[in-house]
Design a protein around this nucleic acid. Structure first.
Lengths: 121, 121
DNA sequence: AGTACTTAGTATCTATTGGATACTCTCGGT
DNA sequence: ACCGAGAGTATCCAATAGATACTAAGTACT
């Protein structure tokens, strides 16, 4: 068992790729939407307001490939597809939720800072 | 004092813009680099390996505008410019560090998941 | 006087990513 | 034969990121 094999400040370290995936535009919102269980494609589209189907598909495929989300197809008519977090994906809920909570609780401060900044320019 | 005025799942909520700023490609790395104090432009470039000066400037300007980073110019020759976190920026260290730590400690799992996934395709 | 040196950036051009909108596919019901 | 539902693709255009080269200001050197 090694310690600290990864360092995000190193541009060639794989952990940087990982950081940029979980910090991408939609991943935090999708993971948050799935925190209470499974959702279908169309439910995810609504839960994550504003995402287009193309980008939702792309992001889900990447999350699946990275082992964070599991995709299950039910051979019904019409077809039903369910998405849910894997154990690895669930382990990401805590950290991402901290960032989400920060964003919600400090959004006001940032809007204020922008107004102040724009006023000086 | 209101509670929960912001919700990142709402596409029109300003907190979503904030989330996407702090979750952008370089912000977490820059904030992490500044955690121990001030750095000059050229030091930041080295600390955050792989960033081009254009993008570093863009990101720093945005962070400054949003009140997370303070920029100080010293009229020396050659000019010296120092960047440091504001109090608001420092409040972001905890949440972002949780995500960074997750990325470093789970990068191995994700690489494994990718290999497994690619093997099935 | 001219030139080199340092730091902190711009400028320019190209490649990649994201977004808007419309279309496809399957199959069962009417 | 035609329509509807769900889960996506296809296509095209705009915005963002990256590579590379260049600029500005002032002092020190020759």
């Amino acid at each position: 068992m090694e310690s600290i094999p990864f360092d995000v400040m190193d541009p060639d370290c794989p952990s940087r790729v990982v950081l940029q995936r979980i910090g991408d535009k939609w991943t935090p919102l999708i993971v948050h939407a799935l925190k209470d269980g499974t959702l279908r494609f169309s439910e995810l589209r609504v839960a994550v307001g504003g995402i287009t189907p193309k980008v939702l598909t792309q992001t889900l495929r990447t999350l699946e490939r990275d082992g964070l989300v599991e995709r299950t197809v039910f051979a019904e008519v019409p077809v039903r597809v369910e998405y849910r977090l894997t154990a690895l994906g669930e382990s990401l809920l805590g950290p991402l939720d901290a960032v989400r909570a920060w964003a919600e609780s400090h959004a006001g401060n940032i809007l204020q800072a922008r107004d102040a900044f724009d006023a000086t320019v």
